[in-house]
């Protein structure tokens, strides 16, 4: 397991989260502690163990039309909307 070398700013950027400098410093310390704690898993021999996974079950939905929301309900929570579209600042490709 890697040493707890977490780059909090890089990870926060992946998670689309602004951090103040104070927060970044606090998290750096706390997350290093936590990663240090979880590093104990290195001690476990997992060489012949398959990763946990849910049971294999074919819970499938038949392709039958169900109800959708009325558009006004669908958009009722939207912070900004126009012409039945949800509006955001211009998206960049």
């Amino acid at each position: 397991m890697a040493s707890p070398d977490i780059d909090v700013r890089y990870v926060a950027d992946l998670a689309r989260l602004n951090l103040s400098d104070a927060e970044a410093a606090t998290f750096q310390k706390q997350l290093s502690d936590i990663l240090g704690y979880v590093a104990q898993l290195e001690k476990v021999d997992v060489s012949s163990v398959a990763a946990f996974s849910g049971p294999v079950v074919n819970n499938l939905r038949p392709d039958v039309l169900g109800e959708s929301l009325p558009v006004e309900v669908a958009l009722s929570n939207a912070p900004q909307q126009e012409n039945n579209l949800i509006v955001v600042p211009k998206m960049i490709e």
């Binding site: 290195e42 997992v46 990763a51």
Partner: peptide, 12 residues
């Protein structure tokens, strides 16, 4: 190192 190993220990 983290997620996959953790899922294996979880199995144990």
């Amino acid at each position: 190192a983290y997620y996959n190993r953790a899922q294996k220990v979880r199995q144990l």
